[in-house]
Design a protein around this nucleic acid. Structure first.
Length: 196
DNA sequence: AGGAAGATCTACT
DNA sequence: GTAGATCTTCCTA
């Protein structure tokens, strides 16, 4: 079997907004027992630190959010409204931040995702941050794992070479958003949670 | 102990 | 398409 190259750690050592934008089109790969589930990342959001009221790191470093202050390229997973949300830590050296993965386009293991989600429609499998984690069986157990390590249960790899247009908007569901638009998605992709 | 939280599902118009 | 109930941690009092 051909080895897939994960994205290098340096990829995540940049401003969260840049990383969020560049993660579009990459492939999220979940190894579950002997099965492989994967999907193309089509929607992301960037979160910062103490200047970002919507960020979990807004009120400073705590035990539950310290991953956002630490090594880039690791997962940061937490529960909101009964859903696990998957972030990848990304920031400049010494900075704070993470990128929320909001939606993927299923590629491999679609039947398993259907089972995990209990829905038929492919478009409805992973077109939202909580749906995607359920489809890929991502929970707090995977918190803090390194997505740049080839043998992690969750990794991010390079996708197909293809061109697409990136759109941006304000982040979804946040009470107080920043002026800058920090949500990014692939224009016209059917698996984006919502447009506008 | 209580409530807020980056959401989702269901049941309607 | 929209509104409302409900999902389950973890924070803050």
């Amino acid at each position: 079997m051909k080895e897939v190259e994960t994205l290098p750690r340096e990829f995540y050592e940049r401003a969260p907004a840049l990383v969020a934008k560049d993660l579009l089109g990459k492939v999220l790969l979940r190894k579950l027992n002997s099965e492989i589930l994967s999907g193309k990342i089509v929607e992301t959001e960037a979160y910062y630190g103490e200047n970002d009221p919507a960020s979990k790191a807004y009120r400073g470093r705590k035990t539950f959010n310290e991953l956002m202050f630490m090594d880039v390229g690791k997962t940061f997973i937490y529960m909101v409204h009964g859903n696990w949300l998957l972030n990848i830590v990304a920031h400049l050296k010494g900075g704070v931040g993470a990128v929320l993965i909001r939606a993927i386009e299923p590629i491999q293991g679609i039947e398993i995702m259907r089972k995990n989600r209990n829905v038929k429609d492919i478009r409805n499998l992973a077109n939202g941050p909580g749906k995607l984690t359920k489809a890929l069986a991502v929970t707090k157990e995977l918190n803090g794992i390194d997505v740049t390590r080839r043998n992690s249960q969750l990794v991010v790899v390079e996708g197909e070479r293809e061109s697409f247009e990136v759109c941006s908007s304000h982040r979804i569901g946040v009470k107080v958003d920043l002026q800058q638009e920090l949500r990014f998605f692939i224009m016209g992709n059917k698996f984006v949670s919502k447009f506008s």
